[in-house]
Design a protein around this nucleic acid. Structure first.
Lengths: 235, 235
DNA sequence: TTGCTAAATCTTGTATACAAGACAGGATAC
DNA sequence: GTATCCTGTCTTGTATACAAGATTTAGCAA
């Protein structure tokens, strides 16, 4: 193979929108919205017809979703939305706790905190009346935790944290339908930020762990509830 | 879209070998062996001709390598082996330390250790003469650390640990060319296993952290050395 | 009704054709 | 000499055709 037959492109192009990406996003949305249910079988042709595209970009999107554990491919027998696996979510939550407490540890060892922390405080450490809700609380919560990890400066940890947060998000959203969690979320985030700003590492980690475990337990209940409902539907 | 137009395939098929997977592996090998150098540009057609295949499976392999951070795609301007980024490897090492110390912590809290730990001891806690070397030390080392994380029981952590270990492996292999590291590796692994078996969590974590940091520093030196050589070649 | 066989249908995997744009190099204007 | 524009070549992105096999279903026998 000849090397360097291509010249170096002058600039990094902004990866203009392509069909495969669009289909990827929309397909993921279908899965997130339970329009494609865990366990459902479908074919590339079906998806291609639905999006008025050819199989090529659909395949690219599906293989990407496969790598990200959302769907499974069966050789010459179609695709399947990966069924919920209870343990996977438990494991992902534990991994989140690990990454986020590590981030807190690192942040608390800094003499000067990144500007990002002050920005988070401006969002979360506010009286009730100043609370903005242009995002859903679910998205705001995800953003809070992601930015916390990002602020610690390890890009790889941040990238993985984003990925697993998104995977959890499928089921996590369902939690925030309950109003009483809104106040609690604000208070808990504010307390965590406060502890970080006072460099109380262990306390911050303790608060965060408790905060995430509440989520995990809620999700556990939701999962059980969904399984129950699914069973009833099929009886 | 009609749901469930497909019936459930009776069995999980063993995903028979396909061309895209083969090309993916071979392409990764090319990158690992520095036959494709970081920074090199190439096109899908070149790769396809080299492997006597069409662009379709090549594209699938390349997109997979892209998601795994090995290559970059430039819109209508070819592909590029992602240049080495020093900080990425540093970050990956820190993530490894985090995952592995977490695994040790968990293992040390078990009343009964998984059988896997005894198996590892059988490999690493042996006198010099009993050392087997059917694998390269580099592969054995990777296997040791992966199995340690696997033993802790969190599948997601184990999966991510495997992925990052593989990414580090590109450069990590170069370290084990030095003979004096062989003895050290055996001793350090044995010491870590011993500490785990005696439930000395903090000590095991301390040993492991030191063990990985040595690797990281070696890699750092290698990277600097390679950069130096590359500079000299281009002068 | 039940069980078996074979063809018809449908699936993914792969090769190829086409489209739209990026890039290099040369011609041209000045 | 220098800058600009044009054109040909090469690139990836997308659509489509074909291959090989898995699944289903119709048909038939007992």
């Amino acid at each position: 193979m000849k090397h360097n037959t291509l010249q170096s492109p002058s600039r990094q192009k902004p990866r203009r929108e392509n069909l495969a990406d669009r289909i990827y996003e929309q397909l993921k949305a279908l899965i997130f919205n339970f329009q494609l249910l865990p366990g459902d079988y479908f074919s590339e042709t079906e998806i291609a017809e639905r999006f008025a595209a050819s199989r090529t970009p659909v395949r690219e999107a599906l293989h990407r979703l496969h790598r990200e554990q959302y769907v499974d491919v069966h050789f010459r027998s179609g695709w399947q939305v990966r069924p919920f696996d209870f343990k996977v979510f438990e494991d992902l939550y534990d991994l989140r706790i690990l990454l986020e407490t590590s981030a807190i540890e690192r942040l608390c060892n800094l003499t000067e905190l990144p500007a990002c922390i002050a920005e988070l405080s401006a969002i979360w450490c506010v009286p009730d009346v100043d609370r903005v809700t242009d995002m859903t609380l679910s998205d705001m919560d995800r953003s809070f935790h992601s930015r916390l990890v990002q602020a610690a400066g390890n890009e790889e940890m941040a990238r993985i944290h984003r990925d697993i947060s998104e995977r959890i998000h499928i089921i996590r959203r369902l939690d925030f339908t309950k109003d009483y969690r809104i106040d609690a979320t604000y208070q808990e985030h504010a307390a965590i930020l406060d502890a970080i700003q006072h460099r109380r590492s262990d306390h911050a980690k303790y608060l965060l762990r408790a905060h995430i475990i509440v989520s995990r337990d809620e999700v556990r209940k939701i999962t059980l509830h969904m399984l129950q409902e699914a069973r009833e539907r099929h009886m």
